[in-house]
């Protein structure tokens, strides 16, 4: 029962940014060998890399679930990547190339939530988040995307352009294109409800811990 408040926490804790849009992403990963080591690769590119365009968008990756699998090791970051698998990752366009790499052992599915801001860079090249699965040698599983991505979210308007791709015919593992669902963003009035939920979670945790003391 101790996990209940933690689940509530993870479900109700809002992303650490004021998101403009939120997506829930899910993939069927049963084709990946459960004992194998793979990597989650989140890349967030600034459009121009020019100082005038940097730091105008943020991404939060949260609610990572692996369907019986588990993350392993510590994540690796480039540029504006930060966080961890349990609390969630953040990616800011602090430089041209920003990345989070996290090793994992696959389970039957992979789900996560992506919350983004959607400022449009003025230079004509939009910021873009993309996601791929890398094999143990840190190479992408080949997909039908132009750069072996499974998912790209291009911040070129409202809503952003979302593209998904399955693995290519030459891939050693067959993974269908991810399912992406846009999720409602909590209304401003919902902040109080969220705070209430956090408080409830805190109290529940205290109650659960109490008998053990």
């Amino acid at each position: 029962m101790r996990t209940i408040p933690l689940i509530l926490f993870s479900l109700l804790l809002p992303p650490t940014l004021q998101a403009d849009i939120i997506y829930s992403v899910s993939l069927n990963t049963t084709a990946l060998p459960s004992g194998g080591t793979f990597y989650l690769d989140f890349q967030f590119f600034d459009g121009s890399g020019l100082p005038s365009d940097l730091n105008n968008n943020s991404v939060a990756i949260s609610n990572l679930a692996l369907g019986g699998g588990a993350t392993t090791g510590t994540p690796a970051f480039t540029g504006g990547g930060a966080g961890d698998a349990s609390a969630g990752f953040t990616l800011n366009d602090t430089q041209f190339f920003n990345e989070v790499l996290q090793a994992f052992h696959p389970g039957s599915f992979l789900t996560f939530q992506v919350a983004l801001t959607t400022a449009i860079d003025p230079g004509g090249t939009p910021d873009q988040l993309s996601f791929a699965i890398l094999d143990s040698t840190l190479l992408e599983l080949p997909t039908n995307g132009v750069a072996n991505e499974l998912l790209s979210i291009t911040l070129n308007g409202t809503p952003p352009t979302v593209a998904t791709y399955g693995t290519a015919s030459g891939s050693p593992y067959s993974i269908a294109a991810p399912s992406v669902q846009q999720t409602d963003i909590p209304e401003p009035g919902g902040t109080g409800a969220l705070l209430t939920a956090v408080l409830v979670g805190f109290l529940l945790a205290k109650r659960v811990r109490a008998p053990a003391q």
Binding site: G47, E140, P142, S152, T154
Partner: peptide, 18 residues
């Protein structure tokens, strides 16, 4: 002309854009 965003393709080490 509509530009896409970038992604780094580790397989060929190219920065890719449509």
């Amino acid at each position: 002309v509509t530009r896409g965003g970038f992604r780094y393709n580790r397989a060929n080490q190219h920065y890719t854009q449509t």
